[in-house]
Structure formats: C-alpha cells, structure tokens
Design a protein around this nucleic acid. Structure first.
Lengths: 228, 228
DNA sequence: GGGTACCTTAAGATTAGCTTACTTTTTCCC
DNA sequence: GGGAAAAAGTAAGCTAATCTTAAGGTACCC
C-alpha cells in the first residue's frame, strides 16, 4: 500500500531531496511550490499526508495549514528552517502532527512520517469497515455482500468527509464546502441527490439507512456502531 | 475525558515537573522511577500513554519500550537528555510516537502529547456531564440511565445556549434570540414547549426539574452541581 | 384569594429532507 | 474530433419529523 505525500516547499533543492527520500522509501510524492499550487493539488486529489514548509512565496504555511485542515483532517508535518520556540509552538498549537526543523536527517524525517501514518491509517491500511460494507479508499470502491460498486468523485469526497468525522454530525454547510468551492449556497438539493446515490451503494435499504443517518435541522452523521 | 499518563524517569526533579505540567493540563499521572516500577504500574493499570526517559537505573528505555509495546500498542514518547542523532533514530526506529530532548518547553511537551493522543484516541465529539445525564455534542444526543435520546435542532440550540452559560441565568429574550432570528417576540410560549421537551430528555422528572431550572420572572438556569 | 407567570398537552401547520425522472456537463474511447 | 456513457446537476411533487399554536391547567407571590 502506497501513501501519497504532498510536499509543499518553494526551494527546488529541498523539494527534490525530500522527493528523493520519500520515493526511495516507497511513497508516492506530489509537489507544490506555493500555497496556490498546494491547494490546487489538494483539490485535484487529496494526499494521505502533507509535508509543509512554513515560509512560502505567496503566504505562510500556518494559514495554508488552516485551509487544508478545514477540508480534511489529514496528517500534516511542518518542515521549517526556523527553529524559534514560538514557531514550533504555533505550528503544533494549530494541531500539526509534528514540527521538524531543517536541516534534518533523511532517516528521521522518514521515521517521524511513518510514526504518524501508522497512527492515522493504522489497521485500516487503505480499507475501512462500515458495518457490512467495506470501503477501499485506494480503489475508491465499496463492497457489500459480494457486490463491488465504484464511487464517483463526489461520492468519494462526501463519504470521506463523513468518515473523517465518523460518529459526529457534519453540517450541510461543511459538506457543501467539501464538495464544492466558492459559495456554498444553492447546492443543498444536489447534495441530497449525492447522499441518496451514496446510500444506494453503502446501505442495504437506502430509504431506511443504518449508517448514513439524517439529523434533521443539523446535518448528517455516519453511524459507526453496527447498524440496525 | 481524562487520560492516564505514565511518567518513567529517575530524576525526581524532572518527575515532579512533568507531573505538574500534565496535572495542570488536566491529565491524570502515574509515576515510575525505574523499569521495574514502570512494568509494575503498567500491569496494575495500563496507562493511555507513556513518557519514557532513555536512561534508567535498572536498564535502558529502549528495551523497556519493547516490553511495553509487546503488551499494548499505546502511545510512547521518549524524553531524553541525549540529543545524539543515533539515539533519536533508534527511539523512533523502534516505533515510538515522538522523541523529545531535554530541556524542553512545557508547552511543547503538552502539544506533542496532545497531537499523538488526538490520533490514537480519536476524540469523539466532546461529551458533557449534567448530573446523571450525558450530552454528546458531536452526535447530538443525550443519555440517561442507558437510554439515548436524539436532540432536535431547536433543542440542541437551546441546550447549547444554556450550557454555555451554565450556572447563570439566561433570559427568555436571550434564548429566543438564540433560537430564532428577527423579532424575538411572540415565541415565548413556543420556547416553553421546547423547554418542556428538553426536560423530558434530560430530566428524570420533567415536571420537577433538577437541572433545567425556572427562575421566575428572569429566565432559566442550567444547574450544574449534580442535583437530586 | 386574585392575578400573573409558567406548565402541559394535543392537534394543526410548516418545512427540511426524500425521491424520481429528466437535463446538462464531463469523461473517455475510438 | 465526435459520439457514447457516466457523472453531476435541476426540478417538482411528496412525506413526515419537527415546530407552532392554542387552550386549559397549576403553582407562586403579594
């Protein structure tokens, strides 16, 4: 199972060095030289983890961090040349998974990344169980009593967002924000249609869902405890 | 939710300092001054995470690490005075979740611990206790003697408003403002109905409330001190 | 004991969400 | 580049959970 790691750093030398290290270790890498590129890459295909430099040409890593985490609670490790206490505390305080200062040992970077990935994607590998349905994130498919259904891009994003918050209510606004950029109004009905289609793939009885539950007036919630 | 953290270090000064930091932050602490003590503590009651010094009187932290992880895959963060590359790599290579070198900032220790705990025990939507009722804000439910009741949107907003001001009186006007936009007149009676319904979910005797109290002429007040 | 403030219940109204079919857009393959 | 198939978006009628109204009842305070 190969993880896709997004490297956000504007120094070409460091970019290629890190890419080299990760590739050697069997990871798949994506590159971004600026905040804008990072967001673009992220939207195109969200990575499994992000290595993020604090200083970027078009903004600082901290605010980029906020934008990324808004969408997905994925592992983020800061890489920074600045070893000021204040910076480290800020980065970690925001909720980063690690803060590594340059220069660093290639080996240490790998180990720290591995430590985080191990916790986040522990036993799941790239599959998750949802009652009698099995989600394969890598392939983007759902299996239920033998049948395998492929998820569309929107369905995938929707399920992922709900899965990240599994057990908890996710507001309609948050879901719309995860599926579309720009103004999050006017898509409520479309969202419902996607919810329906997703239910048809993961639920035994789409009209009486056991997992993807409606919480009227508040949003939707992915019920993890075996359904009824 | 309080985590039990085991601190393994033979310097009494550092022991008490770390204990102080963690206690302040709301964690429960356990202490061990040696490998033997650590294993004993572990057997008696496995902690949720371990802070582990590398140098101990009766053995090194690395081998203790192995013994602990053999039994349980819990978070372990090394604390060490030795900042040799080789040590860091060894610690992380074994599968530790972090490796922090002394001296460290108390704040950083807390943040790094928090980062790991967040991943391992994915915090479920923070729960609040209200006497014998338990509110799960993430799920939008209330549990009382085994039974779980889902809150409606209005009930949720109402309870939230009262909880935010728990202990203090909230005026009818303030509650109406929280539940409806626009002019806050004409809804007083409706509010009462919602209060009633909320009481039916959180109170043992809705007509003789212990928590959601009426303050005649002023408003309502959420009584936090476990009523009876 | 009278008045006011709050409670309680049930029935009716409302509206958030469901469902289905249809249209438009995108993707992919020749 | 063009045509087919898949995905995404739109619309409209429907359903039922939830909210609101209303009317009679109860407790508290002077």
């Amino acid at each position: 199972m190969s993880f896709r790691i997004l490297i956000v750093d504007d120094e070409p030398a460091l970019q290629s060095m890190v890419r080299e290290i990760l590739t050697q270790a069997g990871y798949e890498t994506l590159s971004a030289l600026s905040c804008a590129q990072a967001l673009e890459q992220f939207r195109a295909a969200p990575p499994d983890a992000v290595l993020l430099d604090v200083m970027l040409p078009d903004g600082d890593g901290f605010s980029l961090f906020g934008k990324l985490r808004e969408n997905r609670d994925m592992p983020v490790l800061f890489l920074s040349a600045r070893d000021e206490d204040a910076d480290r505390l800020q980065g970690l305080g925001l909720g980063a998974d690690d803060y590594i200062t340059k220069p660093f040992l290639p080996q240490e970077l790998l180990l720290r990344l591995r430590a985080v990935l191990r916790r986040v994607y522990r036993e799941e590998g790239s599959a998750s169980k949802l009652g009698d349905a099995e989600i394969d994130w890598g392939k983007g498919t759902v299996r239920r009593d033998g049948r395998e259904a492929a998820l569309t891009a929107k369905e995938y994003a929707l399920l992922r967002k709900l899965w990240d918050a599994r057990g908890n209510i996710v507001t309609i606004d948050a879901l719309c924000a995860a599926l579309w950029d720009g103004p999050l109004v006017g898509y409520e009905n479309t969202l419902m249609v996607h919810i329906r289609r997703l239910r048809e793939k993961i639920e035994a009885e789409p009209s009486h869902p056991s997992y993807l539950l409606t919480v009227r007036g508040l949003g939707y919630r992915l019920n993890v405890e075996g359904g009824t």
